[in-house]
Design a protein around this nucleic acid. Sequence first.
DNA 1: CTGAAAGCGCTTACAG
DNA 2: CTGAAAGCGCTTACAG
Lengths: 343, 343
Amino acid sequence: MSGGERRRPPTIHDVAREAGVSRGTVSRFLNGGHNVSPAAADAVRAAIRRTGYVVNRHARSLITGRSDSVAFLLTEPQEKLFEDPNFNVLLRGCTQALAAHDIPLLLMIAGTPAERRRVIRYVTAGHVDGVLLVSSHTGDPVAEHLLGTGIPVVASGKPIDRQGRTARLAHVAADDRAGAREMVRHLVSTGRRTIATVAGPPDTPGGVERLAGWREVLVEAGLPAGDELVAHGDYSRGSGERATAELLDRVPDLDAVFVASDLMARGALAALERAGRRVPRDVAVGGFDDSPAAVSGLPELTTIRQPWDRISSEMVRVLLALIGGEEPSAVVLPTELVVRESA
Amino acid sequence: MSGGERRRPPTIHDVAREAGVSRGTVSRFLNGGHNVSPAAADAVRAAIRRTGYVVNRHARSLITGRSDSVAFLLTEPQEKLFEDPNFNVLLRGCTQALAAHDIPLLLMIAGTPAERRRVIRYVTAGHVDGVLLVSSHTGDPVAEHLLGTGIPVVASGKPIDRQGRTARLAHVAADDRAGAREMVRHLVSTGRRTIATVAGPPDTPGGVERLAGWREVLVEAGLPAGDELVAHGDYSRGSGERATAELLDRVPDLDAVFVASDLMARGALAALERAGRRVPRDVAVGGFDDSPAAVSGLPELTTIRQPWDRISSEMVRVLLALIGGEEPSAVVLPTELVVRESA
DNA sequence: CTGAAAGCGCTTACAG
DNA sequence: CTGAAAGCGCTTACAG
């Protein structure tokens, strides 16, 4: 039982001989079965089973010009990947959605300039058929370069328009503004009156849209929505803690905080605890994402669920459509309020 | 500035014509430059720059039989990927170590039987040159199958020998036992006398070795090391909380807990807080991993650092050596005690 | 050190 | 519906 010798794998030629047909017929069978008689198809099927034939993707790609693979490209600084659980959920979802089409996912990281160059060279050389682009910040140099090459790209999150260049980028995103509105409405409906917010970075769609949703609802409700109620974080836990401490300083009588991500909300809880405020009794905290961080400690977070499963499957669907020649499209997915303990 | 038309990319033929040499010479230049005169090399270099030539990997692979790509294969149930930050660190490290060799990493998940079949078919078809295998549990059906095919495989973590089949699996691991010993010695040296442990699953190397290290040091120190001081978790946060509550029930006067992972240690801290024990004053808590979970809350964890950067780079090094025809090897890397607040 | 040639395994018009 | 043939872009003995 050595198993160590790897003999030459069967080729289409072996299958053709075994099935008593030509190689062209085998190939046609493999590529949809058009113009193959039922009898020939049966013979080929049996021959494939007997020989254990598996297509040589390199030979196929050489002639079709397609690679039948897709890149999952991360352009955030690397630490993000580890602090933000959303990346993981997206990565798993995309891997599995692609696997269903038998398309492997190539993970690429372009955090440094050297990595960026390498990735651009690789992608523009046609080594992948398309790119799933994950970066929340605008003005991404890789994104802009890729757009110029004509290679199919789908971004996660709505790209911020910068001189009109990223406007035609296909993307899939949750409805940030509607989600923020729903959370703030929830806070208002439970009697909160001084509702501050820890917003995300102003160069990210989440940073802009969730803040806008917060403001809209407060204005509609006739509640204060001034800038003293706004502090910014960078989606990290620590930044949520700092921003919340700042808010407590400025507005000691706040009775709720809408935090633009669950991870930052974890930091907000720490700041509130340190300040002796009980959650939710003294201060209600609403998060965003419904990431693992939402339930990684106590109290469990009331939050807005982003439909990550659907986001990843839609990204894959849109990318495959682009590769198939369709026009770029934008998909906006609804969010959902999840009420737990913190608000 | 349309950029959308993707013209036929330059081939080796274009480069040869441009450089005034034959295609064979260009190819030799590309593959190490042996038997290429300095003058010819210069001409080819210039021609490559002018034409923007990038090798067509499919054509190359078709003839070399290598794919110049590697799979990162996750055989844990998928949730693990998201709860355990170590996977992420490993994934990033491997991606970047491979990128330095211009080898793309294919992410594959084999959690369900259907996914397992797909992955095995893909890998054994020769679509990757080797596999980085990440699974902490023994008796992994994919691992056993892969071993039989002769494809190069490197595992992360020491595989538990099961009927001698996985013994010859190349692997890279931290020194679990030595790390556990160091942590328990630290607890003893700071005056702790009733030191319980939350161990990992007994079918994982970490579950076995860290428990053994705990016991060895206590026996050497003449301290209690009975089974009532041992509870098991599954590396998840919740399991650490449950196991610690169980320990507090059985041994109310314990003054330290060595927890076999940081994530479980976070759960342990929650259980201790709920029981009204202060950390580290009443009970010291030592973790393992030095993962992001170690500093994701308060108190920050005293823990054992696994050298993830080196683990990933060694995994890649060993895999490339295997692909190059060398024999399987095992690498054991030292750990390091990191003292923070919890012990 | 160099070129001409064979061939890797597949797909796709083309002619029947 | 089917087969024979060309050709995708590259590497590698081979002969010089």
